[in-house]
């Protein structure tokens, strides 16, 4: 397992006895402490809910101050300094997150990249086949000849399947009919590398659902950048290659 770079971390305070004493003084115990989570968890949740409500009630009504635009180049540079392995940059618009992700595992053609908080994206030949730790995760995906066509920058039609867990936790496949079409050439630089790419659009349809995955592929078949669908709830993730191979 590669070492994971630490860029940021949100702390999630656990229940503390101090808090409990305080609450007792107020003659209203709302917290719990101890090593037996089956007994303390309920109060921890109640506390979290109360905190959430308080945050909602007392935070200013203004929309959250626009986050300073993340400087992807700067983030990539920090990541490259602190992590020796393959790296990508991932942006999920719906979650409002941008994160450098280091290679965390490799199993044949399947590669797993992780954030510092160990949320992962899983790719097979550059195509997204899974996410973990995000909630609403993509559990797995089959994509027929798509990866081969993408790397050859060729058009094609085929079927592919995404799999998700429903609200009960039962796996549900979503089969889709797809068409891959080459588009415009585009050149760009990122993290010190210049890429000359051709854009390919993969349009997929299921009953009542239409998605478009975009890939920017070099002559050699490397996907330098892509925008791929995770699922209905999380929308799309934009992935840019930072460093393909281990230093």
């Amino acid at each position: 397992m590669g070492e994971i770079l630490a860029v940021s971390r949100m702390s999630w305070p656990g229940p503390r006895c101090g808090a409990l004493l305080l609450a007792m003084l107020a003659a209203l115990a709302v917290s719990g402490c101890g090593s037996d989570t089956s007994r303390t968890e309920g109060t921890k949740i109640a506390l979290d809910v109360a905190k959430g409500l308080k945050a909602k009630l007392f935070s200013s009504r203004k929309s959250p101050a626009a986050k300073p635009e993340v400087d992807a180049e700067a983030l990539a540079a920090i990541a490259m300094d602190s992590f020796p392995g393959p790296l990508i940059m991932a942006r999920i618009d719906k979650l409002g997150t941008v994160s450098a992700m280091g290679e965390f595992g490799r199993n044949g053609a399947t590669r797993t990249f992780a954030t510092p908080q160990r949320q992962t994206l899983v790719f097979r030949n550059g195509l997204l086949v899974g996410t973990r730790g995000l909630g609403h995760d993509l559990m797995s995906a089959d994509f027929g000849p798509a990866a081969e066509l993408v790397s050859r920058r060729q058009a094609g039609t085929y079927r592919r399947t995404y799999r998700f867990l429903d609200g009960e936790g039962i796996e549900r496949p979503v089969p889709m009919a797809c068409e891959l079409t080459p588009g415009e050439p585009r050149s760009f630089s990122f993290a010190g590398t210049r890429y000359a790419t051709l854009q390919l659009a993969e349009r997929c349809e299921s009953s009542g659902l239409a998605i478009v995955n975009d890939y920017w592929v070099t002559q050699g078949g490397t996907i330098a950048m892509s925008r791929q669908w995770i699922g209905a709830a999380l929308g799309y993730v934009t992935i840019t290659l930072v460093r393909e191979n281990r230093l």
Partner: peptide
């Protein structure tokens, strides 16, 4: 019961298989 108020799976991702 089929529609949880939050998505499931807000957790640390599993360790990937090491072949």
């Amino acid at each position: 019961p089929r529609r949880p108020p939050v998505p499931s799976g807000l957790e640390t991702a599993p360790l990937p298989v090491r072949p």
